[in-house]
Design a protein around this nucleic acid. Structure first.
Lengths: 337, 337
DNA sequence: GACTAGTGCGCCCTTATCGTA
DNA sequence: CTACGATAAGGGCGCACTAGT
């Protein structure tokens, strides 16, 4: 009965309103609708308002897919974190969540979106599907950045600015200053033999160790014991040093989790904290305050860090290459040192 | 001299290879390239392979923006979490990170992407810009779901299945069973006066309270003290009950953080744990194990929860409406009860 | 001629539908 | 039935241009 193809062409039953449809309703062209909805000054304010009203009343839905295709941008920023359940670290790093929170504040304010990814996933992808990449986490070594450089998008990295030569802009805590705070604290409390629990091949840890050394008085002795970022690693690293005669009276750890492990080992060995041995952590994660012996630690403001990382990225996406930046840290004195 | 528009048409200098270009190189049509790259059986295996090779050697980059527009899908799933730095709760909830990790495993495996959002942002958006929404967090009340229902996309919610009538599929811990575990533990250790710290208007908390009551012996007395999900709330709620004569010998909290606050208040009041008062938390977050008095608590497997939430959503996106599901919980006995 | 307010056209790239050999 | 192709969306926006001051 009805000529369907013609009917479709004449008045195709579209389930979705486009700008073109709105344009007909408003008696203007589609591009004017486009501009009106973006508050372009090329459209008279009254026309703009009328079009917006129309869009509202007709339940118009903007298609970001179409915009993304046209502009060849995704309006999203990839955030790379490694949440590996088999690894002990991430669960104990609520700080990452704080950083995510900070990033969300800034990124959503700029009308961008955060796409969560793992380094493994993004590395194996042909395409980042994002306008920029923010790299987070302790594992963010140089090689990770290099791998990602093949995507032609801005990269902002959390890490240690020193010694960074590759692509990408680095934002990080002032690790060396944090180390100095630790060294001074030990100096003030008369400690002479210090054990540092952490992996010096990690640039951030290396900077902290340097700082500790600076903060310590001339006569003090500093020994670095290699150790990853988990509580069990801290426990084992310290336990290995508790046999025989104790040659240290202070322990600094590369994270609060490691410090908690050290606390365990000391307790098991029958040592008093801070009486026999003082302990200082790093991060001021929530577990620091609630530990059996409330942990003295170096506070990194992860929320601020997240915000800053995001702002750097947004600056870059705005066309201006940002500068690296260092975030100050502070000592939180509790009972352990 | 040169007719620019014609020149553009004849041999426009394109910086990006399209399927159409690949088609010319392979001597086939664009649609065949499309099918070949998607492993369609409509293309002969040898042709398929040849086209894939070609794509590889010429550095072809697939445009997901174009696919998204054509298919009217985003291939991404919005995950709504509230990380509000002004709020005390989220920082103490590293469990959320574990859930995110679980979701990432499943979602990236399915070649979807996770878009992080806050409830505020998505509520004010005209459009979710995602094929589905996963709602996470303690604040996921019914009204939040209703607000999101106006988007015409699948919603999967973390929460309490009981009493849920609105749209969306609910996945949650077996809160009532968790409560029973708590009640039994108190029963076994001879506790008679129980204080429950939590907000019963919250469906999950209500279910736990019911469970506790079931697990308790007939003579025991249970009192619910309203309290939000933060450590300070726990501290204050308990402190308010410590004046005058103590009428309880056990405390159950709606989260480990709240339990930590209660522990603080008890310590300040000079009570021994678990001697005078036993304390049980909920979640088994990292702070439970490292607390001053290692916390007995009910473990929820957040990684598994995240994976399940994601799978439910993927099932739905695959065209089949999933069923609600309840995740088992277990008691982790430490020192506090 | 310079400015304002607005338009027509084509392109971004992929894929469902229908058609053909 | 198998393997492939031509066509037409999908929706927004840059570009080059014009009508009217």
């Amino acid at each position: 009965m009805s000529d369907e193809s013609t009917a479709n062409k004449e008045a195709r039953p579209r389930d979705r309103l486009r700008m073109a449809d709105l344009a007909v309703l408003a008696g203007v062209s589609a591009i004017t609708v486009s501009r009106a909805l973006r508050d372009s000054s090329l459209v008279r304010p009254d026309v703009r308002e009328r079009i917006k009203q129309l869009a509202e009343t007709h339940g118009y839905k903007f298609s970001s897919a179409a915009r993304n295709l046209r502009l060849m941008r995704t309006h999203s920023i990839a955030v790379v974190i490694d949440i590996d359940p088999s690894d002990e670290r991430p669960m104990g790093d609520p700080v990452i969540l704080a950083a995510l929170g900070g990033m969300m504040q800034e990124i959503t304010k700029a009308r961008y979106r955060i796409v969560l990814t793992t380094s493994e996933q993004i590395r194996s992808a042909a395409h980042p599907d994002a306008d920029g990449i923010i790299l987070l986490g302790q594992g963010a070594h140089e090689d990770a950045v290099l791998q990602l450089a093949r995507f032609d998008v801005p990269i902002v990295v959390w890490g240690s600015a020193e010694g960074h030569v590759g692509p990408g802009v680095v934002v990080g805590s002032d690790n060396e200053a944090g180390g100095v705070l630790i060294g001074r604290r030990f100096a003030e409390t008369g400690r002479r033999g210090i054990l540092y629990l952490g992996d010096e091949s990690h640039p951030e840890v290396a900077a902290r160790v340097r700082g500790v050394r600076q903060g310590l008085p001339p006569g003090a002795k500093l020994t670095v014991v290699p150790c990853t970022f988990s509580a069990s690693a801290g426990r084992e690293a310290l336990a290995s040093r508790l046999g025989g005669e104790r040659t240290f009276d202070a322990v600094a750890a590369c994270s609060d989790l490691v410090a908690i492990g050290a606390l365990d080992a000391l307790k098991a060995g029958g040592f008093a904290v801070p009486g026999d041995v003082a302990v200082i952590g790093f991060d001021d994660s929530p577990i620091a305050a609630t530990a059996a012996i409330p942990l003295t630690t170096v506070r990194q403001d992860w929320n601020a860090a997240g915000r800053l990382l995001a702002r750097k990225m947004l600056t870059w996406l705005g066309g201006e290459e940002p500068t690296p930046e260092v975030i100050p840290v502070s000592l939180v004195a509790r009972l352990s040192a």
